[in-house]
Amino acid sequence: MNRFEVLTPADLAHAARLLARQGHVALAGGVDVIDLLKLGIIAPATLVNLKNLPELHGIEPGPRGLRLGALTKLHEVAEHPFIREHYTAVSDAAREAATPQIRNLATVGGNLLQRPRCWYFRHPDVNCLKKGGDRCYALTGLNRYHAILGGGPSFIVHPSNLAPALIALGASARIVGPSGERSVELEKFFTLPSVDPKRENDLKPGEVLVEVNLPPPPAGAKSAYLEAREKQSFDWPLVGAAAMVASDGASRTVRDARIVLCAVAPIPWRSPEAEKEIIGHPLDAERARAAGEACVRGAHPLADNAYKIAMTKVLARRTILKAAGIEEA
């Protein structure tokens, strides 16, 4: 690990100016930053600790939805009664992530901006495409945990399971940079490797993710998040699925829906194909199954990860039904 200094600005504009400088990296909970430092993937001269920026704190439920300060801990998201009731997928995803110790430290902003877990990317002896090398070793190497959708030229999967849940509920991010602020739909914030394999999102140098905003859920909407892991503790999802389903009570006709997958693509993967299968129809197990099938219609598995196709279908179906409160026979 290299030597570095830590600055703790108390003013957002000042933080943005610092982060615009070469070799300056933001520090939130530090869960990923410290790992990346130890692995030698980053070697910043300065860490800019965000903890004293008041704009980044707080959970505020209100009539216009919900504001989550970027420094909100995953644990707080998992346990907040308002989030559990109105944005169930989000609290469920936060609760599934990592371990209690990590959830007490990891922040929402850091979770959305964490780097991929790909074992080639994280290996200190491998100079892969994401680190400026000339190829993605996962393509022809060991790829059981890699992408089945949206891959190429890099085949990482996006590691955040919070992001799909937030996107399913229509979240946007408020970002402040050296030259002003912007708000971006979270769905459009993540970028495919075909755009630039070296990054996973659209955060520019100097920009601070200040907060995530969720609109009020559509009328009659319920949401859910489910994931499959090898281990039940201390493990990452093999596949996850978040679903928001807004339907008319008695007829169960779906008026609005969002289905967003986790760990199948280099970005949180929204599936309009799956949504189309259920919107406008009365929801039942058969419809949900069709949506699951639709999720993976364009999938291209690598040598070791075809199992993710089967898993994705199942998890999409189960999550849709869970969100809609329908018990499977």
Partner: peptide
């Protein structure tokens, strides 16, 4: 997990090498 071409173990850390956790 050994990468046959690179000759490296790709899961040499306590994160990638999967040991049972409390819930398992």
């Amino acid at each position: 997990r050994m990468d046959p071409r690179l000759g490296i173990m790709v899961n040499p850390t306590m994160d990638d090498y999967k040991l049972v956790g409390p819930l398992d």
